[in-house]
Design a protein around this nucleic acid. Structure first.
Length: 603
RNA sequence: GCCUUCAUAGUUCAAUGGAUAGAACAAAUCUCUCCUAAAGAUUAGAUCUGAGUUCGAUUCUCAGUGGAGGUACCA
């Protein structure tokens, strides 16, 4: 049993014995003692006053005495400041705690068992008409990190991706490619497939806008109001009409259109795969909307028969959610084609067939909060047992100083460009520091890859997912301060020390080492990893892990600066500090691993 | 209009209802004959407004202000 549990249990027992009252162990507030006071752990006694019917000081005194008498091997002393009972824990306890952390390769995490619930996590979910941008990067990093965190909390995890491979958007790219492409391919142009398609998506929009402007001017000349003219031009432009015709042909299975669609999607997938690989993102099962949208239609018709939904005169199908305090929601258009919601229902059906899902997590931007609120209700009505408490892991937008990113307008930070730039910068910084003079070029490149990606991943994951975040392309991501490389550097430095220590004579010391306050504090911090992982699993919070890693790193750096390790004057001290360093490296590596950040052995 | 969400130093971000609200960047000043200076130390600087809940509120509740997002045949 760990120190905190021992104390918590003793406190509960103390309250029972001293005041004859029952107190729930999980309401005992145990926290790290602030550095300006004596002691390492603090019990907040305010919640006990109701039972003790005494002042806070007296209550704390009572408890302090009780603890010293009952768990003398743990609590060696105490002091009371107002309602805070500060406990001094014996040095041996901390040393033992450190040993148990180092010895346990699974410290802080739980392995899934056969009985563990199966959690499916959907993330990425790209459209196939454009390359990934920074917003997608946030989605992918959050999703894959979340999967690791949920798994570390003892769940079985299936990572899934729903590829939005059909719809008007891809038709736009296809049409533009036919019109303006001259048969350009990724091979002939040397462009990555997703970028190539994205360029045609932009080209479509450019020409479409031109047509709109011409038409609008014409309508106005014919005497139409400005607003009406804009609206009509939007719908009447030949390009958009043609794109719609193409979509209809696609739905009818026109062989030529389907062939082109397949070919262009393949290009995009090849491009995505590269980006995913670079980011270290992967999936266990990929679904395609072209396979699921028909299933959705079926499911909706089923719901219609059962009377969950109703049909309007124009043929469209709706769900009436006014009873749930929401609006009415369209499920099938009057022409029988499906909408976003229909597809998500179909995807859910297939997933449920494929896996015994206990819990479903959708990693999707907060712009779709309403959509998922509705989806949850609909899935529940349609009999999916996990529908009611599906989790929409809703994250905020990545904003640029100029505002929101828009693919069509080209105001995006491209994922591939950004990754490349980060790695290049990491390489340059390293060269400038003249650190890797004796490191072979190939390894230097590998280190730069880890560090550049580490900087990017950490930059994104350290921010509370719910909040919108700002990315300023002009001030590229830092390598100093609260950053991934800061943590990676500390890790690499520990590895360097451990390598050096291997060469030294070690004379086994059986003398007990008396830990200093700073060392105890570090052990406590290490021990906090388990709680951080648990909390991250509850909050679905990669940022919690990131911040934990930073705090541990910062504290270790101070320790490193203040204490000699290899040159320690006492063998027991050296042994202890090496063990401490080993443990810090272990925990950092594991914590950063949950964020998908690799740690270089040197840098 | 209605719904959701966010608001903390100049900037980007932290803080299970707990003690004097933490960092980092930017600014100023120190520390490499000493285990990796991508480091450490020091100085200066912040909880949107108003009520409420209680021993105690950045955190919970309500109202307001400001930003972001959504709002039925776009995904």
């Amino acid at each position: 049993m760990n120190i905190e549990d021992k104390i918590t249990n003793a406190v509960v027992a103390g309250i029972k014995e001293l005041y004859g009252a029952d107190f729930d162990a999980k309401n005992v507030a145990l926290q790290q003692t602030r550095s300006e006071f004596e002691g390492q752990l603090t019990v907040v006694v305010f919640p006990f006053l109701r039972m003790s019917r005494k002042g806070p000081e007296q209550t704390a005194e009572d408890l302090g005495k009780f603890l010293i008498q009952n768990i003398p091997d743990v609590v060696g002393g105490y002091n009371v400041i107002k309602g805070f009972l500060n406990l001094q824990i014996s040095s041996a306890c901390w040393a033992g705690l450190l040993q148990s952390i180092v010895a346990d390769p699974d410290f802080g995490t739980q392995k899934p068992t056969d009985e563990s619930p199966l959690v499916m996590i959907e993330y990425s979910s790209p459209n196939t008409n454009k390359p990934l941008h920074l917003g997608h990067v946030r989605n992918n990093l959050l999703g894959s990190s979340l999967a690791r965190i949920v798994e570390a909390n003892g769940n079985k995890v299936v990572k899934t991706n729903i590829v939005n491979d059909r719809g008007i958007h891809i038709c736009k790219s296809m049409l533009a490619w036919l019109r303006y492409g001259n048969g350009e391919t990724p091979e002939s142009s040397g462009k990555k497939g997703d970028h190539l398609i994205g360029d045609y998506y932009v080209a479509f929009d450019k020409h479409y806008k031109e047509e709109q402007n011409e038409l609008k001017a014409q309508y106005i000349a014919e005497g139409m109001e400005e607003e009406a003219a804009t609206e009509k031009a939007k719908q009447e432009a030949p390009l958009i009409k043609e794109a719609h015709e193409m979509l209809v042909k696609w739905e009818q299975g026109d062989p030529e259109i389907r062939a082109l669609w397949r070919k262009m999607n393949e290009w995009v997938y090849a491009g995505f795969d590269e980006t995913y690989k670079m980011m270290g993102v992967s999936f266990d099962k990929i679904y395609y909307e072209s396979d699921t949208y028909l299933e959705g239609k079926e499911k909706v018709m089923e719901g219609l028969e059962k009377g969950f939904f109703y049909r309007r005169e124009d043929g469209s199908v709706w769900a009436d959610l006014t009873g749930e305090g929401l609006d009415e929601k369209l499920l099938l258009r009057s022409d029988g084609t499906s909408v976003y919601m229909t597809q998500d229902i179909g995807t859910a059906k297939l997933r449920f067939q494929d896996f015994p899902i206990d819990k479903m997590i959708y990693v999707v931007g907060n712009e779709q909060n309403y959509h998922f609120q509705v989806l949850s209700i609909l899935l529940d009505k349609l009999g999916f047992k996990w529908g009611k408490d599906l989790v929409h892991f809703s994250y905020g937008m990545v904003e640029l100083p100029s505002g929101k990113m828009k693919s069509r307008e080209g105001t995006v930070v491209d994922a591939d460009d950004l990754i490349e730039k980060m790695i290049e910068d990491a390489y340059t910084v390293s060269k400038d520091l003249a650190k890797n003079i004796d490191i072979p070029e190939a390894e230097a490149r590998e280190i730069a890859r880890k560090v550049g990606l580490g900087a990017l991943k950490y930059f994104i994951l350290k921010v509370d997912a719910r909040k919108n975040m700002l990315f300023n392309p002009a001030e590229s991501i830092d390598f100093n301060g609260n950053t991934g490389p800061f943590i990676q550097y500390t890790y690499a430095r520990i590895q360097s020390i451990l390598r050096k220590a291997e060469g030294l004579e070690t004379t086994g010391s059986d003398k007990a080492y008396e830990l200093s306050d700073k060392e105890i504090s570090l052990v406590q911090k290490l021990n906090g990893f388990a709680a951080a992982v648990r909390q991250a699993g509850i909050d679905y919070s990669p940022s919690g892990i990131a911040n934990y890693c930073y705090e541990l790193t910062k504290e270790y750096n101070q320790f490193y600066h203040d204490f000699s390790i290899l040159n320690a004057d006492d063998e027991a001290a050296r042994q202890f500090r090496l063990t401490l360093s080993t443990a810090v490296a272990q925990v950092l590596s594991k914590g950063m691993g949950l964020l998908g950040i690799e740690m270089p052995e040197r840098m």
